[in-house]
Amino acid sequence: MKQALKRFFDGDLWYSFSHSPVVILSAVITLLIILSAIFAPMIAPHNPFDLASIDIMDSNLPPAWNEFDGDMRFLLGTDDQGRDILSTILYGARISLLVGFASVAFSVVLGVGLGLISGYAGGRTDTFIMRIADVQLSFPAILIALLIDGVARGIFPRDLHDELAVYVLIFAIGISGWVQYARTVRGATMVEKGKEYVQAARVIGIRPGTILFRHILPNVTGPVLVIGTIHLALAIITEATLSFLGVGVPPTTPSLGTLIRIGNDYLFSGEWWISIFPGIALILLVLAVNLLGDWLRDALNPKLR
């Protein structure tokens, strides 16, 4: 373990990380947002989901520094129901991050699995899986998500749907993102499959399943990691978009996207803070994650070193 750590800090990855201020800043911001989301119940000044603690009289208050109506209790102001914006952002980031990570994990498992099978089996299996991928690619991700959300609404009763909304979102965003992983992993698998270490394993007699998971999988994970970080930012945005369109999580447990949509209604009546602050939080998070992903892609590419 100690040796592994030493190797990591000696390695090229750490070197390129520690020599790029932008990347360090992105990492700090990402970490900060993730930590504050995890510890939201401890650091948030209010609990926006606790109906007993919100007062409709506090609704639509501007940020604290506003000279007329600013209220020190609500640092970034309140929304139309009197919820503290800062607290709602912290709680909302939890939902955004949960949906982001979970849907990426879902895509990765599905995409990597299918990509491995497709690349290794070849022939008809490969054609079949890749045709499905092609069909899927001809639909925009948002459309697929809308479709699944619509179906879910039809199947589940209304109250149950609100409860399940987050999971439906995760499934919808996850299922629309697997193709990229499948294609990348398929290509990498086809390359690795031709290498002599795989043939050596076949000569020993190792079965295809074991070869796939023990030998090929560890060698194709590099690009998956990179796509994953970029996809994470995309999934968070998709969630925000869906919530903005009104098909995401219900307004009672707002995510960043829901909050922006609520604020959108009040934008022209002067209550800008409801949209802008969650918007800034979203941009910071997505930008930081994206920059990290870009850096990782370059740092792991030996040709660019």
């Binding site: 270490y197 050596a200 060698n219």
Partner: peptide, 27 residues
């Protein structure tokens, strides 16, 4: 069957040309 083949696989082994690709780099 694979099972029957294993008996003979044990008895014959192969050494490959390219020493850089014949060993799994992650193991």
């Amino acid at each position: 069957t694979e099972k029957k083949r294993d008996h003979f696989r044990r008895q014959m082994q192969m050494i490959f040309q390219d020493p850089f690709s014949s060993l799994n780099p992650r193991m």
